[in-house]
Design a protein around this nucleic acid. Sequence first.
RNA 1: GGGCGAGUGGCGGAACUGGCAGACGCGCGAGACUUAAAAUCUCGUUCCCUUUACGGGAGUGUGGGUUCGAGUCCCACCUCGCCCACCA
Length: 951
Amino acid sequence: MNLRKPSYDYQNIEKKWAKKWQDSHLYEVDIQNAKKPFYNLWMFPYPSGAKMHVGHAFASTGSDIIGRYKRMQGYDVFQPMGFDAFGIHGENYAIKVNEHPWHLMEKLSDEFRDTQFKRIGHGIDWSKELRTYWPSYYKWTQWIFIKLYENGLAEQKKAKVNWCPSCKTVLADEQVIGGECERCGTQVEKRELEQWFFKITKFADKLLKNLNHIDWSKRIVEAQRNWIGKKEGIEITYDVVRNSKPGVSDESENSPQGEEKIGKVVCFTTRPDTNFGATFVVLAPEHDLVKKILSGEIKVYDEDSKNSELIEQIKKYVTEAINKSDVERLAEGKKKTGAFTGLYAVNQLTGYRMPLWISDFVLGDYGTGAVVGVPAHDTRDFEFAKEFGLEIIRVVKSADDSDGGSADDDGEITDISQVQEDEGVMINSGFLNGMNIQDAIEKMKDYLEEKGWGKRVVTFRLRDWSISRQRYWGAPIPVVYCDKCGTVPVPEEDLPVELPFVDEWKPSGDGKGPLANIPEFVNTTCPKCGAPAKRETDTFDNFLDSAWYFFRYPFVNREDVPFATPSLEKSDDSEPNSEAFKKWLPVTLYLGGPEHAVLHLMYTRFITMAFEEIGLIDFDEPFERFVAHGHITMGGKKMSKSLGNIVIPDDYMNEIGADALRMYLMFLGPLESAGDFNDDGISGITKFLDRVWNLMHDSAKSQSDKSSEKVLKKLHKTIKGVSEDIENFKYNTAISKLMELVNVWNEKSESLTLVDSVKFLKLLAPFAPFITEEIYQEIVVEAGNYDVVEKDCLSRRNVKQKDASEKVLQSNELVSSSSLNSAKLSSSLDSPNSLNSSDTSDSSKSLTSNDVLDDGNNNVTDTTENVSTEFISIHVQCWPEYDKSLIAENFMSIPVQINGKVKRVLKNIPVDIEEEDLKSLALKEVQDLIVGKDVVKVIYVKDRLISVVVR
RNA sequence: GGGCGAGUGGCGGAACUGGCAGACGCGCGAGACUUAAAAUCUCGUUCCCUUUACGGGAGUGUGGGUUCGAGUCCCACCUCGCCCACCA
């Protein structure tokens, strides 16, 4: 790495202020008494690798900048941080490096926090840190499960679920990407297991409806809408018969000879309009009717020998199909497989006896698990019909006859390219003939309902959320199974059900979690009747840990409640209570990656709705605003371990400093689309920081008696522009505006007063917190200029500073009491090999330690012992305001177009010129260009341009 | 196959509701300072034509359209990225 470094001593400056901010508790928020709360949340990271990478640095800096800006605007900005270190991602990494997840996660989280996050200059309130694997946290995760269970939102059922053979656990639908495990990329299999589910489908409609009004990045809203997948269709019930034959029976009312009605089959379709063209019905291999055929409950043929032969074939097909993984099914491409049942379904519209098939392209858990095949107007049906020689009947033709009704149009369909799916006019469809598809759909639905053959229904793609995991590293599901009492949730006073610290923690793959092998854990007594009972041995999906963490942050020090709301409030009013809850939640702004669109973000919405339904809270959406950031790429590709193109920010912080790294990352592109990491451009940033340093240390430039007009105007335009850009997360253009200002300021004759120079410094502060603090302390605080520089906002700040020094004492107490608490929590639990209590208290202690910031190179004088000393940081001063009169221009230049092309530019035009005067000026200007032509009209776009139209 | 987004100099990227395309930065070129290099500073830098000032022409993925005027709006297409996907 050979980068242009800043020429000032950024290393020591950054070290010094990181420590000072920490010691003075600058970013700690008084949750209880805050006046203008702004809950600025960034998705907490999960340490699934040794170091946080540059993507984390990029996104968290994006969150920090708006937080710093809001803080300077006088908001009480709460910017908490924690680690999502419980669960499969961390455990997989622990397996890889062969360390116990408890030690590993503690170590990695500490490192993320102390060597990376604290160094990069974020305004984080570390006194509210949480980690999802701390018993003091997961106690409440378990509590939430019990609340949902008590309110009928959690249930246990046997279900065919996604099984990852590599991670050796079940996965939720959302965690299977293209048939592969979200974590490790292994092909997912299907297994039938007894699992716990959260009934997210109960809120399907609400989850969808709220999407219309929540202020979230559009792409996330669309992704969720698709994932929920609401479809309005109809369920059509067909009679199932045996001893029949395919095709239209002559006597559709009376059965053909020997035909015998033996049951019904219900098919879901969104396209009943094409039902005159339905020629077969396909069942999913899991369908009830298939089970009945296999069990012999339904006989296909009278003769036993023929029957059992058929059953053998069906059994063979079904067994293969069920055991196939999704990827294997897809790998076979569009080639359809299937088995004929020997039965027929009767199409009431036509009397057509539709052969009843079984095929794995029909999904058992969507719709009714049965589809009616219209091969002429559905590509999948067409492929199936072609494969098995089923009849294809056209019932839709192209709507426009302009191509002269070519043979292609209403003739026989022989090729997949002729299959019309979306638009056209009905033919061969009795009373629907001549109608367009949309009208025909409605008409047919009415007709089928009238006849009693069908029923309008709404289906959703969304499935219930499977939360059981057969893994060690997660919160145990707090349930006990008793022979007498059945399923009994663990009572609140017995929580947490602690995860025992064991040596044998790796997954075994037998469908049970490692906890099942620990008798001391499994064997317990029933909380209800006291009889011997067994514990549930699965653990929670880690997405449950993160589904509610933002509720916990403000209340992380409360032991008695997960968070305080009127319904949960107990006695203690000295710590954040339900009044505080109202101030801080829902979260003001949430920033995170779009890859969580249908995972984490859907779950947080579900949990919030569940809390509301239970009566814990009175709102139903977790975040007032959600902004999805883009991803930093490397050579146009996503950064990933497999590509080996991961960039670690530490090297850059060493080389160019945190300020320069922050600014460089933000300069790459807009936050919401990000950019490609290529360190070629870094010198532009370090050069800029040097210029700032030099300007601010050149008193002729930055402490002039009077600000020169040109740069003063530029300053005020910049104040306006930077403020707007930050509000819109366009940090890249905000930085370019700061650069423009510096370029003007650098001109020979340009200078600013101290007050104006500091205004610029403040604009830079959210982007480069260290250098701006250093300069501010030097030329404002230490030089005794504070009262002069901040005279416009002294009144506000005086109050603020006072609050802060009171708060300092309070939060010191909170920190020490929380370390005691978590130590107490884990040691008081007497499960076998209980998590070592010293581990926990050590980690809590490191919460306030400065080891890393105080490394060997210590020429920082420690004047910060006495925390009550007032510390006047630039980061809590007023954000500058611009002066409208200084932004207004007296003169403008107006381009003159002839027939839309710019030909001349009128310069130094007074802004208050009369339109007519300006027009004649313009015509005079272009006189030579329009001789001999008629001026048709002259258009004046106010303050923009003049357009002359000639002929 | 479906959804979303994006295609602008050598590069990253600017351009509010249609109104001087290429801000800012990198890179590159020239110059100043220096014994020299680095650093720094100044000037230039979309392409083409004109020896040049002046000037002219073309130009925002492709082809059409609307408009006095289109990177921006409409239609068709191409390419790339991300997400979802045998979802009836």
